[in-house]
Simulated assay, not measured.
Amino acid sequence: MTASPEAIGVGVLLVAVIAAYALFAGADFGAGIWDLLAGGTRRGAGPRAAIDASLTPVWEGNHVWLIFGLVITWTGFPQAFAAVMTALFVPLFVSLMGIVLRGVGFAFRHEARRLRFRQLAGAVFAVSSLITPFFLGTVIGAVVTGRVPARPSGNLPSAWTTPTALVTGFLFTAACAYISAIYLVGDSHRRGDPRMVTYFVRRAAAAGVVTGVLAGVNMLLMRDSATYVSDRLTGDALPLVALSVAAGAAALVLVLFRPTRIALLRVTAAIAVAAVVGGWGWAQYPYLLPTSLTLAAGSAPTAAAQAEFAVAALAALLVVPSFGYLYWLQQHGRLQEGSSASLRAAASPGDLAVPAAEPPAPRKGGFLTGLMLTAAIVDLVRDALARRRGRRPS
C-alpha cells in the first residue's frame, strides 16, 4: 500500500517543522547550557549578559514550532502520535516539565531582587535547558530503533534507555550547544564585543567536535540497533548525510578562522542541522514507526491532510513574516535596547520608591463601551415597539 501524495506532503511538512524547532528552539536550549557552564557569579557575568541580550527578545516565540509540530502529528498521524505518547510518556513528560521550568527560571531570574533567588532561578533555567533536549533526543532514538510498537500497552522504559537512544539524547544536547554558540558568536560580533566573540568561538569549536564524535558513535550503534534506518542513511539518504557533514565541517572551519563571516557561518551551521533532520526523515520512509507502522497505514484521511495544508498556508502568510520581522528587529538591536532598558529598570533600587502622583489616564475602550450601550438601548426600544404592535421581534 503506497502513501497518498497528501500523506507524503504532511510528512514533509512535519520534518520541516522539526528542523525549524531544532534550529531556533535548539539554539535557545544551547544558550541555557552555556549559561550553566559559564561559572560563578563574577566569572559568568559576561557570558550570561551576552546570552540574555540574545535570548530575551525571542525565546518565547520559538515554541510555536513545537506546538505546530504536535498539531501536525496528532491530526495527520493520529496512530503514531498515540503510540509515541503512550510508550514514551516519561521522557516526554520530563521534556515538557523542562520547557515549563526553564521559562519560569528565565523570567524570575530577571525579576528577582535577592541574589540567592536570582541564582536559584538561573540554575532552574540552565538545568532545564540541559535536560529538555536530552530527553527529546531519547524519544527520537527510541523511534528510530523501532522499539515503539504501533499499539503499545503502556509506558515502555526499555524503548528510550537503550545505548542508541541515550547517545541520541547526548547528540541532541551537543548539537543545541553547537548551534547556539555559532549564533552567539554572530551576536557578540554585532554588539562589538571581541572578548565574547573569542569566548563563544572556542565553545562552538569544542561543541562542534563533540557533536561530530557523538554522531559517529551513534551511526555505529545504529548498525545493530536500527538496521532499517542505518541502511537507508548510508543508501538513499546518503546525499543529505554528506551535505550535513560538509556543512558542519565548513562551519567549524569558518568559526575557527573566519568568525566575522557571520552570515555564511550561520547558514552553514543551519544547513548542517537541517540536513541531518531531513536525512533522518528520508531514512525512515515509508515508516512512521520503523517496521511497525507505515506512512500509508498511519495517516489521517485526505480531508484532514487538506486542512493541514490550509493551516500551513495561513502560517506561511501570517506567522513566518512575523517571525522574520521579529528576528530582523532583534538582529538590528531594536528589541535589545528596549528589553535591556526594562530589565535595568526592574533591577534598579530606585523603583522601590513611591512614584509621584499622576493624573489618571483616559480609559481605553471608551468607543467600544459606548457602541455596546447604544446597541443595547436600540434593542430595548425595538423590543418595546414590537410588543406594542402585538408581535415578537424578528
Rank of each mutant, 00 (worst) to 15 (best):
L254R: 09
L254K: 04
V255D: 07
L256E: 00
R258G: 00
P259R: 04
P259F: 08
I262E: 09
I262V: 15
A263S: 12
A263F: 11
A263Y: 01
A263W: 09
L264R: 12
L264K: 05
L264M: 11
R266Q: 14
V267P: 04
A270K: 00
I271V: 15
A272M: 03
A272L: 04
A274Y: 01
A274W: 03
A275R: 01
A275I: 06
V276N: 05
V277I: 15
V277Y: 05
G278W: 06
G279I: 03
G279Q: 03
W280N: 15
W280T: 15
W280P: 00
W280Y: 14
G281T: 01
W282Y: 08
A283D: 06
A283Q: 02
A283Y: 10
Q284A: 12
Q284Y: 06
Q284R: 15
Q284D: 03
Y285F: 14
Y285Q: 04
P286T: 10
P286A: 09
P286W: 03
P286I: 06
Y287N: 09
L288S: 13
L288G: 10
L288K: 09
L289Y: 14
L289P: 12
P290N: 13
P290I: 11
P290W: 11
T291H: 12
T291K: 13
T291E: 15
S292W: 09
S292E: 14
S292M: 09
L293Q: 14
L293H: 15
L293D: 13
L293F: 14
T294L: 11
A296S: 14
A296Y: 08
A297P: 07
G298E: 04
G298A: 04
G298T: 13
G298I: 08
S299M: 08
S299H: 12
S299G: 15
A300M: 07
A300C: 09
